[in-house]
Design a protein around this nucleic acid. Structure first.
Lengths: 350, 350
DNA sequence: GACACCCCTGACAACGGTGTCAGATGTATG
DNA sequence: CATACATCTGACACCGTTGTCAGGGGTGTC
């Protein structure tokens, strides 16, 4: 019989290349790894044989013995690869990585602590060279025993708890403060803040910034409505509908995240209150400038964040040792387009 | 001295587990691979040792000898991971993959043929189990010698040339036809089509569908303007500006892609012609319903596409052999929201 | 001319697992 | 009780590469 199992693909090994070039396997190894002490003529012959046989060294076998084992891959954990904010960071990170011939494993977190741990485990099992993580678990202490010594970790978007490493994030407190002050400056005194689950660090930070700004304007915090646990567009839309139906409804809304913003805009439209109730979103969204009124946002800089995070990661990888953990805070930009410049219906007493 | 080099991380090997359990290494191997012929008591002891030592088998070493080598990873090549259409497919694929404990390498193509080859090479070098590819090179013949025998390939969004494999894509010809007929039905006779580079299969297909529809209405194709090579928002915006400045400017525009649509909307706004010139976009965009007028689009179903593509890939992987290549065409949906229902300014003579 | 030294080179062990196979043990059968 | 057979187990080669090290050859120095 002619073998029932799959015909073993005739993989070319270093041995055949060595034989073809008439040298020892170690010499071939030297050539492909740019190690010194190979005569130019020998190297040329070896290279010719490699090309002739179309040999691709087996990275896994190589890493098996190599001390400085590098898989040229990194793990990237994002809120969701489908979220434009995360996707933009992803792209920036990929560009930096691709430039160094490093591949990126991307996973979606979905703000589920269990997925966080599972994703990191999966990355580690695949022996990535480093990790860029968006976290949501209450604590990242688990990383201490999960992440092998020497594997660099950079957090993006959210600060970790119980694990010290680089972290790149937006200036959330300032950003939310800017949003709130912008509205307060236009005379609003009854504000609402719509945020995601408080298990998410950015939600907490933005809430903090929001409340601080209220304080600065002497607005008692109990006049503000804070709706949390808004994790998608629909929930945000419903929340705004409810909010505006209540007596003493807010005259201005700060949205804590891109999906919430979109949900809020939908609700305002449905209620016909979009020229009436002020709205400032956190994180920019596509087409925001073409709405009527235009959507005022505190824009993040996701590309810059991805860039900074990947540069930190590769810096640590290049150094071959953990760097002193840095916290990199990326500024945010208020972009006034109309929705945030709507004045409250009547002069209010502070 | 205390060793200058990095302190070798004390990796736990199968040997230590075997010793701890008082068995041979092969028995440990049997247990972790669910091979038969291990006494239950022995297996239990081994499992206890694995847990006690927190041993994680080294997948790379395992795959070295294994005949049926699986890295539990797949390579995904997309237009750009930052494009919402691609990002949504990505998410769908990731979900299917994650469910099977398979990790996804994602790369951006940027419609550069060289990046296509480079990305596939990188995936193959990393020994992914399968490939999901968006292609742009003139021919995919190169895959024959690049992709190892037995590695399944599924194309998404665009059909390959010179390489036979599964392919999942939108019904581009029909979609573009629907868009054009929609406008023709409202009385438009001077149409413009804005598409990306013709090296991109979808651009060509959509052009074909567009022209077919014109033919059905007896509209001579030379009365239609086709602008190609629009690869980003700005280019599309400039193209529309130029287009509408010309004499005999089109009264309706079909946009061949999400970024082009956004660029076109910007241009129409700037010119104040947005209630005046009809526009139908290919591929839906966020907030399209809240523009004024609402944006009429031929929506794709990226999630469904990603789902279908990954299911085909895993079906082939499960079967352990190449499946009969299938072409899966995903329907598109016309969503009328206003911009596509604008009538031409004056009755025209066909 | 002997010696030291540097530059090349390849034999061989090692990396952490799996495949093969032979041997040990237990049970049913003649 | 001997034999056959199935079940369980571990020794060992092997996967494709890199690290180590010893050896061969050329050159410079005394």
């Amino acid at each position: 019989m002619t073998s029932l199992s799959m015909p073993r693909p005739p993989r070319i090994t270093i041995r055949e290349v060595a034989q073809h070039a008439g040298v020892g396997i170690k010499t071939v190894s030297r050539v492909v790894n740019d190690e010194p002490n190979v005569a130019p003529a020998t190297a040329a012959r070896v290279r010719a044989s490699i090309d002739a046989l179309r040999w691709e060294p087996d990275a896994h076998a190589a890493n098996l013995r190599r001390t400085t084992t590098r898989t040229r891959s990194v793990g990237l954990l994002l809120g969701s690869v489908a979220n434009p904010f995360a996707a933009t960071m992803h792209r920036a990170i990929e560009d930096v990585a691709a430039h160094r011939d490093v591949a990126v494993f991307a996973s979606s977190l979905d703000d589920d602590p269990e997925r966080e741990v599972a994703a990191v485990e999966a990355f580690v099992r695949r022996k990535v060279d480093g990790l860029i993580l968006t976290c949501v678990a209450e604590s990242q202490e688990y990383l201490a025993e999960l992440v092998p010594p020497g594997m660099p970790v950079v957090f993006v978007d959210r600060e970790p708890t119980g694990y010290t490493a680089d972290c790149v994030h937006s200036d959330n407190v300032v950003g939310a403060g800017v949003a709130a002050r912008h509205l307060l400056g236009f005379g609003h005194r009854r504000l609402a803040l719509l945020i995601d689950r408080r298990s998410i660090w950015t939600a907490r930070e933005r809430e903090r910034g929001f409340l601080t700004a209220l304080g600065e304007f002497g607005v008692p915090t109990d006049t503000a409505t804070i709706v949390a646990d808004l994790s998608d567009q629909d929930a945000a839309e419903r929340a705004v509908m409810t909010l505006l139906a209540a007596p003493d409804a807010p005259t201005a809304i700060v949205s804590g995240q891109n999906l919430i913003t979109i949900g809020a805009v939908h609700a305002l439209r449905k209620l016909g209150r979009h020229r009436d109730v002020a709205l400032v979103g956190f994180d920019d969204v596509e087409l925001a400038d073409l709405l009527d009124p235009g959507l005022t946002v505190v824009a993040q800089r996701p590309q810059e964040m991805g860039l900074a995070a990947s540069e930190r990661l590769f810096a640590a990888l290049d150094a071959g040792r953990p760097l002193d953990p840095a916290r990199i805070v990326i500024p945010v930009d208020l972009i006034a387009r109309g929705s945030g410049e709507i004045r409250p219906p009547a002069p209010e007493s502070a």
